[in-house]
């Protein structure tokens, strides 16, 4: 109930009408702050875009998220888990989004969303208030600021322009598939299939530059050339599509 109340709090005028009197004081405090939520969203922006011209990245774009059936963003290849939940009728309302953001794998055990969750309820309320803006009033979307692209590493246009050789990527990928499953399932090691190539390239260079903090990945990326990273990106982009 608290979640629903907060959701409506984005349009506070309606909130009082739906919330039981005894809860009114309780719900007043955790109203989401979209401005703060925009900052919280930086944790999500590596994989998700929202706002004008938002496109699918590692995760689907989040315009029109509220009220959307799970697993149905256009042109995005979902995990079996989210596709199944969508078929079973899961709709992204406030309560489900709140639960999902708290611990994605508690709600959808086989989601590919490799995120530990936002444990702080206020963080969730804020980020949902922020995302709500891009669902509630679609006409506002063109005027909103596009998601600031996270620049983990500055890559030259030449590096980003390298067209990878998927055949070479397939050979190199045998080293990845010792841990990352080719069918895209995620049982403790993130899925890396079906990513847009640029996200893949940026992520690998971020490990190589030791900007991303994982010792195994830093080591694996550390000895890959620009061409090898591009080849892997090209191969994994096609896998799972």
């Amino acid at each position: 109930m608290r979640g629903i109340a907060t959701y409506l709090g984005a349009a506070a005028v309606f909130a009082a009408a739906f919330v039981h009197q005894a809860q009114a004081e309780e719900v007043a405090a955790p109203l989401g702050d979209p401005a703060r939520g925009e900052k919280v969203f930086r944790k999500c922006a590596g994989c998700h875009a929202v706002g004008a011209e938002a496109a699918n990245k590692v995760g689907p774009q989040l315009n029109g998220l509220f009220g959307r059936t799970a697993g149905t963003a256009p042109d995005f290849t979902y995990s079996d888990g989210l596709a199944r939940e969508g078929r079973n009728g899961l709709v992204w309302d406030y309560d489900h989004l709140d639960a999902y953001l708290e611990n994605p794998k508690a709600l959808v055990s086989d989601t590919r969303m490799n995120f530990r969750g936002l444990k702080d309820a206020q963080d969730r309320h804020d980020v949902l208030a922020y995302l709500r803006q891009f669902s509630d009033n679609p006409r506002d979307i063109p005027e909103a600021e596009p998601t600031a692209l996270s620049k983990e590493v500055d890559l030259s246009a030449e590096v980003l322009a390298i067209v990878g050789d998927p055949a070479y990527g397939e050979y190199l990928s045998s080293e990845c598939s010792t841990c990352h499953q080719r069918n895209g399932s995620d049982q403790g090691i993130p899925s890396i299939t079906g990513w847009p190539t640029e996200d893949f390239v940026v992520a690998m260079h971020a490990y190589k530059a030791k900007v991303r903090p994982h010792p195994v990945m830093q080591m694996m990326a550390g000895r890959l050339s620009d061409e090898e990273i591009a080849a892997l990106a090209a191969y994994f982009a096609e896998l799972g599509h």
């Binding site: 598939s177 010792t178 841990c179 499953q181 080719r182 399932s185 403790g188 090691i189």
Partner: peptide
């Protein structure tokens, strides 16, 4: 948790 993921990954591989 990563080791559990690795076990699932390598046995599938």
């Amino acid at each position: 948790e990563e080791s559990v993921g690795w076990y699932a990954g390598i046995t599938a591989d």
